[in-house]
Design a protein around this nucleic acid. Structure first.
Lengths: 350, 350
DNA sequence: CCCCCTTGAGAAAACCTTTTCCCAAATCGC
DNA sequence: GCGATTTGGGAAAAGGTTTTCTCAAGGGGG
């Protein structure tokens, strides 16, 4: 009934070592180690006594010593150059999730776009004997400013351009775009425009191509995608271009936007012109950046890249690589997911 | 002239150990260690020869072994519960920056709001012998779901509620609010309203009080702050309340908003009512969330909490604590900074 | 010429845990 | 009752580095 003899006596200064546990239990360190790890042979009574002693003393093995011996540190490095973090954070959360469940800790390494910083981080990670590295970025079509080939630990690339022959995970942008356009088609939209970001982004072309493909498969007219910036302002401008011409009959009845900010600009501009969303025009975004998607009026239907799943998969892939499982090199594309809100109207049946 | 004998021969598998360097240089490991660390006494020639050998072999000391011996791992843990990360990321970047310059790596620990997860992370960190812990959150007035008292490593709290007697860093919200209101006053605004977030946030009261104080100091009328949500929608609603009444003369000539999203809603609502910003009404935000502040029309003047500086200071504070410097416990408030864009009009002189 | 001090460098302990090998006692088979 | 096997547990090496201690050789002073 005593409330004092509880498990974890908040120890003062130096951590309890195995040697102390062994001494307290009256056995050798070897026996103590084996008792706690379920190895070796000894009386059940002995094993239990040692365990109890360890528990009482609040013993926790020193990971540093374990790692040194096992040549496995249960630690990985996460490299990113996305300081702003709209994409990085869900990704990092996913990675962290997947790993912490397996007792692996994550070194966060922000390399900006600085090669020197990148080199510094990679060396520090290697010195600290990470079991592997996950490289993450803000763009699928750019390399991190760091050379990760010929390292002596496995590397997984997530949402950034992988080295040739490495394993990489990215979102399936073409699939995501299909999802968007097909959703609009299902809702009866037929004249679908596409407004996207700068030409310099590979995903802009990937999504635009998927957009064309779907429309062609359905024998529908394909408008030339309008490429500009990833900004609200560009969404505004694009509306002026699309809805400026006189003949109302030539207007699109839906706009597939390259990201949510563009979509936000499009929706605002349409409202300012008195064009109703979704009644007159359906609008769909990309990224499902919730804080934007939920603030548009009406709330924005958008394509989610499932970045936290991507992160989780990257974590698991790295883990299996670390465990010695050979992984098929190359790029694996993970499916996107449609998040339906109100900016496209409701499905006929719904 | 040979291009092959370069410094870092991309080593194949097992890292080079000090023993190998010593053997190659024909000395003992002790001497090799001392040569590389600038310790001990030996011929300059010997020292240089060992160093050269190490360089040639691409030797890098094993941090695990060093940490084990020195009882200092050059590693700290960063605890956060901000998955969304608008606040966390700049903060984390600041921490990481400050630390990496000092050769310290950062474990990223996302604890959500889950006590079990928090406990898990803290134990893992301690097992890995972190030198210290930085606790970070998304709110100044909430504890992380984790008990960090009585740890055997120093803890610094940044942008989260510290334990009593601990060292904590937060933004100076009162000062930030003063900055905002005084800016409006300098521009000649006299009827300043305040629209802010939910009552349950301590910062809402802090900022509101500073707002009142400044106005009273200037002998100006103090409106009752309008408290609601941290959302655009609430900004809209607040405008309806403030500008709904008939008499135009009772309208505010400026609105100090509790965050940038509210400000965005306010600006949009004002435009819809045909009220010009900044000509008729000045609007100022809080947080300086660039992607929002730059997308409002006109771009939003806002108060920046300098979170990356906060993170950097937290990192440095932890470092000095780790180094044995006693730090004054208690909460240190770091100044905010005004970022002037166009939503308040230009200063008379500018 | 002897002793003491300095110089240069190595041996070994320490950090903490795991694992292999080994040994004494107990048990078993015959 | 004797040899062979099993059982319970310990000694020691290993992992890579740092640091203290020790020691031999050489130089200078008396």
């Amino acid at each position: 009934m005593s409330a004092d003899a509880e498990p974890a006596p908040v120890s003062a200064k130096p951590p309890v070592t195995l040697r102390e546990v062994a001494a307290a239990a009256g056995v050798s360190v070897a026996t103590a180690s084996k008792a706690l790890n379920g190895q070796g042979r000894m009386t059940a009574e002995t094993r239990e006594r040692i365990r109890e002693t360890a528990r009482l003393l609040g013993f926790r093995p020193n990971s540093l010593a374990q790692s040194l011996l096992r040549k496995r540190s249960f630690t990985v490095g996460l490299l990113t150059n996305d300081t702003y973090g709209r994409f990085s954070l869900p990704l990092m959360a996913g990675v962290s999730d997947a790993l912490v469940d397996n007792g692996v800790s994550v070194f966060l390494c922000n390399v900006e776009d600085d090669t020197r910083l990148g080199q510094l981080h990679v060396e520090a990670m290697l010195d600290k004997r990470v079991d592997g590295i996950i490289a993450t970025g803000k763009r699928i079509d750019r390399h991190l400013p760091v050379d990760l080939s010929n390292l002596r630990v496995p590397v997984v690339y997530a949402f950034t351009q992988p080295d040739p022959g490495a394993v990489g995970l990215v979102s399936d942008d073409a699939g995501g775009a299909r999802l968007a356009v097909e959703h609009l088609l299902r809702l009866g939209r037929r004249r679908i425009a596409h407004v996207s970001g700068p030409e310099s982004f590979a995903v802009v072309h990937t999504r635009a191509q998927a957009y064309r493909d779907v429309l062609e498969e359905h024998g529908l007219p394909v408008g030339e995608p309008l490429l500009g910036q990833w900004s609200e302002a560009w969404g505004h401008d694009a509306v002026a271009k699309l809805f400026g011409k006189a003949g109302r009959e030539g207007w699109p009845d839906a706009v597939f936007c390259g990201n949510d900010q563009i979509a936000r600009g499009v929706i605002d501009a349409l409202r300012e012109r008195g064009i109703r969303v979704p009644d007159d025009v359906g609008v769909i975004g990309f990224d499902n950046w919730e804080i934007v998607a939920e603030a548009t009026r009406p709330p924005l239907t958008s394509v989610d890249m499932n970045l936290s799943t991507l992160g989780r998969e990257a974590g698991l892939a790295l883990l299996s690589l670390v465990g010695g499982q050979p992984a098929a090199p190359g790029i694996r594309k993970l499916p996107c997911r449609l998040v339906v809100r109100q900016s496209c109207g409701r499905p006929p049946g719904g």
